[in-house]
Design a protein around this nucleic acid. Sequence first.
DNA 1: TGCCTTTGTTAATGCTCTGTTAATACCCAG
DNA 2: CTGGGTATTAACAGAGCATTAACAAAGGCA
Lengths: 223, 223
Amino acid sequence: MHILLVEDDAQIADGLCAALALENFTVDHVATATAAEQALSLGHFDAVILDLGLPDEDGVSWLERMRRQQHDLPVLILSARDSVAQKVSGLQAGADDYLLKPFDLRELSARLHSLLRRSSGRSTHVIEHEGLMVNPSHLEVTLHGVPVNLARREMALLLAFLNNPKRILSAEYLQDALYGLGDGVESNAINVHIYNLRRKLGSSMIQTVRGLGFRLGVPDEPA
Amino acid sequence: MHILLVEDDAQIADGLCAALALENFTVDHVATATAAEQALSLGHFDAVILDLGLPDEDGVSWLERMRRQQHDLPVLILSARDSVAQKVSGLQAGADDYLLKPFDLRELSARLHSLLRRSSGRSTHVIEHEGLMVNPSHLEVTLHGVPVNLARREMALLLAFLNNPKRILSAEYLQDALYGLGDGVESNAINVHIYNLRRKLGSSMIQTVRGLGFRLGVPDEPA
DNA sequence: TGCCTTTGTTAATGCTCTGTTAATACCCAG
DNA sequence: CTGGGTATTAACAGAGCATTAACAAAGGCA
């Protein structure tokens, strides 16, 4: 689970990072609203822990802006005890939960887990490509409106292609995408999965580039 | 909106009653766990505000008892600042939210509204889904007019699905819904309950999404 | 209270779907 | 024609889920 921690107090941030790391969260820490926005646009996160007292922008207005930009991931607000009105407007701005400073780490953990569970699967992110509609979090795929049932590995493979459309992906790259770096298979598993994908999605979806790898869709310029 | 306030401190209770009345809530105030249980069995309430420091019974154990009796209405816990562990177990016992004393009335109001919004539709009203009529407050279920007898856990499971229609619920999420945060069972109890539900409601009601969890009804059309 | 019924959990077993391997057939370039 | 790369297919092992039975616990009733 990937958490974005937005907190300008270094001491609190360090403590939180350590505590969350212990629970096998992957934590990215930023200290400003600007950096937080950048981080959101660059990578994938499952939740945000947001301190309201940021140096460059008010947390509440930042949150409102994010919500307007269709970021619908769960947000847990941290705030100082004496700013109740701010907290209320925090909830109104679209926070899913909030916590008063100083807080107990166990409590933060409990609320965070609860948030993540509540929000799992609510993501509406749908990728589209040539009549193909893909909802990764639901393992749901339709081809021209017809539902297609994909297994996990097939979905992972398809996503690897959708993340790099019209680019040639080597078998080696695909192997890393499916199994993680280093830890791989020792056979033609990738080939088999590609074959199965082609059976389910039509053989023209994935093209072979002999000697190099595979590509989703047609080449850019036949020059 | 009908609120049951369980609080033994007369001063706090009076303040809360006045504040909530200002917001057009109807508040019934009791000072003991025993009286609270009576009140719940006698009348209808939309939410409970529960102080943990009651004279006759621990608030957490009271809450657990209520949850076992299928009172699934939203509960907001009030508790003293220095008892964090108690608060955590309060969440585990099935509280929907909690607030530290001393609290701000505006904050209480905001959380209460948020709670009621979240739970709207799950109380009082009869829930209908594909020939299924469910009355949560009376634990009554009919399928195409035919009464179906559900056990407590089965009802809790069905409600978890009805509260999240057409969404995939992981076994972990369902476990939390039935047993509270963290503290769960160590076997395939969820699977067995799902199997039993399917026997009583028909096997097409709950679908399996392999590797992710279960879902009530058909998937949304992503198109 | 003690018996009996209902409910909840555990554990064992079987079944279906997946992922990987391996063997074989195919294809294109040199 | 030949060899390296790719496609196809079948078989196997394992995971995940369904099913069932047995046991424990809780609640009703006399």
